[in-house]
Design a protein around this nucleic acid. Structure first.
Lengths: 325, 325
DNA sequence: CTGAAAGCGCTTACAG
DNA sequence: CTGAAAGCGCTTACAG
């Protein structure tokens, strides 16, 4: 049998109310009474049932997190940042994916209705923003980890400096004497893609822009296309590291040297970036810090703090490696 | 105010007992009564409170998962496999890490005592196996995802064919005419390391063994050491992909061609493996399937099935790419 | 400083 | 086929 608060009360010769008070350090309790209760708790190894506490208090001390996929290269960092923060606050983390489509979403919304968690952290899955905003308006505390730059209005979110990240890549290439860069973007409906592109072009204007889709293949194809058209370029700025890797592969296959002939800069700084050949210069996206910050904001909100309606912006950082020294 | 079972009962003109029965399809209920109750549930958008159900039933329909780190390259796959399976069964997943050391473990064990979840999935964190086994003996259903080959006795676990994986790498190299391979291992106290090594040597005996630690650096250093000692070798079998990447870098730096001079085979098949130069031949570890299988076993156990005391073994698969054609 | 009692939202014998 | 009542393990006014 599990040890309950009633066992502790009986053993300590007090009421359940008193035990509850010493556990939650709420209200006045005689010093010696409290000490006795604490001793019994330790002796019996009593831990309050989270389910019962949740029911009585109307909250679960659990935070939900919804992510589109767990296998994306930077998702582990975001998750680690979130988990560390949540755990340190004594909360639990309930994890949900949209991997199985509509069925996943249904499972998720059911858990919302079931009050399985007090607040929600979300890395925006495709086409789910409206649902999320709806939940938020209905009173569920939510913080968005907005990696794709959807920046909805009046919504607590954490973002990174995509525009400045693009600009920093451009400044670096410019300082290295590059004048004719190719930009390989991500899907053009992403806010982050537009920001990275315009930040870059503001510093280093170019009309060599190929729309990619964040895959290695799209990076490879973009370079092959330019090469086939005999278009001259001396640098590549790819909107993520994977497509930058694809670009480098195509360059190598064509006998171009990186960085001597063509410098390459990526975006994200995923673990792979340091292992490419040559190691990839890239704009670091502070994934772990974004997770930590979002979690801290949400916990603050649960604790009663009012959430900032302005997005919290975390800075990118250019990491210089051999592909663009 | 949230909608409760009492609201549904009142609106449908029945007792809470009856509502509960139609929700859980338990016991006989008149067809038309049931239909009426269902209509009211739909109309009110009623969803049972998971906390209350858990308290009344003594279970939470939630599974806990404990992992050493969320940023390891193959962890995302394991997690995705677990989440998909757990969600499909209508369960929730509560995630814990050991990232913050003793404090994390304490947080975790508290949650165990608090009955926050019904069963536990664990990817073994360093030095935690004893604690886990203890919890299992105390009656907590546990399944171990045993990536490092600790294979404790009489413990439900899922493992992969490390020995056969090593052998398959050796057979492949042998068929390619390689006779003098270097093996770069992981930490030698890992069961998986011993298995990969002995499986390999059984097919292709060698005394060129350097103990590494799964880092890129250790792969690089191992190769540099042999090269400096002018020891001849025509192949490398590294115990994970990261150190294989390090080995390839050192080879390239020394002007050796992969695979012409030296073929390289890794282990794991992490996403990076297809993007190295040249793309890495490697032994695929079925991370996602291990997650799925472990979750299925645990759910079965919660459902009353008796857990197999034999470890469930999932096969590795050699993925042939350019580094060892 | 302390306790009896009601209540959180369900499920489950028990009785009919 | 259906319902009244007790119970899951806590918290929280309320009263003293």
């Amino acid at each position: 049998m599990r040890v309950t608060i009633a066992d502790v009360a009986r053993q300590a010769g007090v009421s359940k109310t008193t035990v509850s008070r010493v556990i939650n350090t709420k209200g006045e309790v005689d010093r010696s009474t409290a000490a006795r209760v604490r001793a019994v708790i330790a002796q019996l190894g009593y831990v309050p049932s989270s389910g019962a506490v949740g029911l009585a208090r109307g909250s679960s001390r659990t935070v939900g997190m919804l992510v589109p996929s767990l296998t994306w290269p930077w998702m582990g960092e975001v998750l680690q940042g979130v988990v560390d923060t949540i755990e340190a606050a004594g909360y639990g983390l309930l994890l949900f994916t949209c991997n199985r489509g509509a069925e996943s979403v249904e499972h998720f919304t059911t858990q919302v209705s079931a009050r399985a968690f007090d607040g929600l952290l979300v890395v925006e899955p495709e086409n789910t923003l409206d649902t999320i905003i709806g939940l938020h308006h209905k009173g569920l505390p939510v913080v968005l980890i907005d990696d794709r730059g959807s920046h909805p209005e009046d919504f607590p979110s954490v973002v990174t400096t995509n525009r400045e990240g693009g600009a920093s890549a451009a400044r670096h290439l410019l300082a290295d004497g590059r004048r004719r860069p190719l930009v390989i973007t991500g899907p053009s409906h992403f806010g982050c893609v537009r920001d990275r592109l315009s930040g870059f072009r503001e510093v280093l204007p170019t009309d060599l822009v190929v729309v990619g889709d964040f895959t290695e293949l799209s990076g490879r194809l973009a370079v092959e296309k330019l090469l086939a058209g005999e278009v001259a370029f001396d640098a590549v700025f790819a909107h993520n590291d994977i497509s930058a890797a694809g670009a480098m592969r195509a360059l190598r296959a064509a006998g171009r040297s990186v960085p001597d002939d063509i410098a390459v800069v990526g975006f994200d700084n995923i673990p792979m970036a340091r292992h490419t050949e040559p190691p990839l210069t890239t704009v670091h996206q502070p994934a772990r810090e974004m997770g930590e910050t979002a979690a801290t904001m949400l916990l603050g909100h649960l604790g009663g703090a009012s959430a900032p309606d302005e997005p919290v912006v975390l800075p990118t950082e250019l990491i210089v490696r051999k592909s663009a020294p």
